[in-house]
């Protein structure tokens, strides 16, 4: 394998870890371990939540090479982080040639996530459980199950084909969840609108990225912390917009302005 291909392999591994929700420090460390093991000279990497900057010295020591990689902020996929972590370990233990490692890394970065229907069902169950934790009754939980699944069905089935931007996907998703909640309550399923709505949009709330961002701040990684913080705030704003719009719409329907 040429020097360039080795350098690309190392960055591919780091990119996979950052993109799928691994810690930034884990990504940098893993890249440095793999690079050191495959004999890339003087490898240094700087990673933030949406990019990796890496440089290395050529084998004869005359040139530096540098690569800038953009990483998209995408949903967390822990199975890939785990697989990449395992790969870096087998590299460090000498159980993997560079060719094998590249093959594995490419396979891992294309690995399928859980099936669509499975995640829709999981979102519904999660919504119902969290509605219960927010002191909802059995009927509230049932309503949260249906509206949470409906919102996630939109995100998983419809949005990838028709809605290009993340922002509008979140707004419409929250609208569907809130509108379904109003509808189910109107039909007599559930008692507290607030609890049903918060349960059904819970799978979309940015609680984990907010916590990760504060953790980054406390670990002195201010840049990544700021990126994730702003991302979390924008997401929360989108959800609030969506819910607000859906409730306005519902009120209009109730008052007979539309029908």
């Amino acid at each position: 394998m040429t020097e360039k291909e080795l350098f690309d392999l190392v960055i591919l591994i780091g990119e996979g870890i950052v993109e799928n929700g691994g810690e930034i420090s884990r990504a940098t460390e893993t890249m440095e371990i793999v690079a050191a093991h495959y004999g890339i000279r003087d490898f240094k990497a700087f990673a933030i939540a949406n990019g990796i900057f890496a440089s290395a010295l050529s084998a004869d020591g005359t040139n530096y090479s540098c690569k800038i990689t953009c990483v998209s902020l995408s949903p967390i996929r822990l199975s890939r982080v785990e697989a990449l972590n395992g790969l870096s370990r087998s590299v460090a233990d000498d159980r993997c040639t560079p060719e094998e490692a590249r093959e594995q890394a490419v396979r891992i970065c294309g690995m399928d996530s859980a099936g669509k229907w499975k995640s829709i069902l999981a979102a519904g169950v999660g919504s119902a459980c969290f509605c219960y934790l927010f002191a909802g009754g059995a009927a509230d939980c049932a309503a949260a199950f249906f509206s949470g699944s409906a919102a996630y069905a939109f995100i998983k089935l419809v949005a990838p084909r028709f809605v290009p931007s993340n922002l509008s996907m979140q707004i419409i998703g929250a609208m569907i969840a809130a509108f379904m909640s109003c509808l189910l309550l109107g039909l007599g399923l559930g008692n507290s609108l607030n609890r049903v709505i918060i349960g059904s949009i819970f799978p979309m709330t940015p609680g984990v990225s907010l916590t990760n961002s504060i953790r980054n701040f406390l670990e002195n990684d201010y840049l990544t912390g700021l990126i994730r913080l702003v991302d979390a705030l924008v997401t929360a704003g989108c959800l609030a917009c969506g819910v607000g719009l859906a409730m306005q719409l519902w009120n209009l329907i109730i008052q007979g302005a539309i029908l």
Partner: peptide, 17 residues
């Protein structure tokens, strides 16, 4: 119990093996 089931459900969403 609800916390255990809810967390397991979100583990599916986060694509845990």
């Amino acid at each position: 119990a609800a916390a255990v089931i809810g967390t397991a459900a979100f583990a599916v969403l986060f694509d845990v093996p």
